[in-house]
């Protein structure tokens, strides 16, 4: 593996995570709890599609085999997808959606903040744009966590359940491998383990305002999204997302 290959893999991972989460936001479209929130979730979905396109396009350029962003997004199977498993979890309800948006969003925010200092100009440029978007996603989801946690008995239970269920995907947000290590050495990527503490502080602050209990350490933590190890949900999401491209492989859209 050379730096170019590592950077390709790194960009595809970021793009995969963005596109899968955008797909989950798309599922809300037309079904939100109130019109204003429908519009907000669409905005976040649009931000994420934009992030995915940026990183896929760069990956395609690095690979230099004439593939497009869509070739990469629509023509790989679930074992080849490298997104964080958190984002493929179903929406279930608005509490799940907001908790997922917050837990992932805070990690993405920190990662993009560091990547704005990347030695690779394209990465730092894409990170700068994404950073602004994730700043907003974190603000939006934190406000909701606080309102749900400090709202009614029902909302308190729902938001706590979502935190308890999604917690097993939190360690993975900071998982790294040899791809990260190589790019860290070259000044392109950032060390996620150093961001964990700050992430915990962000989570603690919002949880304390919301009255949400942070799950105790030691529970099961799933890993391996970056290596194509996923939950059962991803395959279904992809079979829907990729349907037209797979059914009409020779078509242009």
């Amino acid at each position: 593996m050379n730096t170019n290959d590592a950077l390709y893999t790194y960009c595809v991972r970021l793009a995969d995570t963005a596109v899968i989460l955008s797909q989950r936001f798309c599922e809300w479209c037309g079904h939100g709890p109130i019109l204003e929130e429908d519009i907000a979730m669409s905005n976040m979905g649009l931000d994420l599609i934009g992030q995915a396109r940026g990183f896929y396009a760069y990956a395609a350029a690095l690979e230099n085999k004439g593939r497009s962003e869509d070739d990469i997004a629509f023509h790989r199977n679930e074992r080849e997808f490298t997104n964080r498993c958190m984002v493929e979890q179903p929406n279930y309800d608005f509490a799940y959606t907001m908790v997922r948006s917050f837990l992932h969003g805070a990690a993405a925010y920190l990662q993009y903040r560091e990547l704005t200092k990347s030695g690779d100009e394209t990465v730092s440029g894409l990170a700068a744009k994404s950073l602004k978007e994730m700043t907003y996603h974190v603000r939006h989801s934190s406000e909701w966590l606080i309102r749900l946690g400090d709202g009614t008995d029902e909302s308190k239970v729902r938001v706590q359940n979502a935190v308890d269920d999604l917690w097993q995907f939190t360690d993975e947000l900071f998982e790294m491998d040899e791809v990260d290590q190589m790019l860290i050495r070259n000044g392109i990527a950032c060390d996620l383990t150093q961001l964990r503490q700050e992430w915990d502080q962000m989570v603690d602050e919002v949880f304390s305002k919301a009255g949400i209990t942070k799950p105790a350490p030691g529970g099961f933590q799933s890993k391996g999204g970056m290596k194509g190890m996923h939950s059962e949900h991803l395959g279904h999401l992809l079979s829907e997302m990729q349907f037209l491209q797979r059914a009409y492989p020779d078509a242009k859209w």
Partner: peptide, 13 residues
Amino acid sequence: AEGNWVREAAAAY
């Protein structure tokens, strides 16, 4: 109907 608890929670807050 599914959004009702969300609207209710924010109003309560």
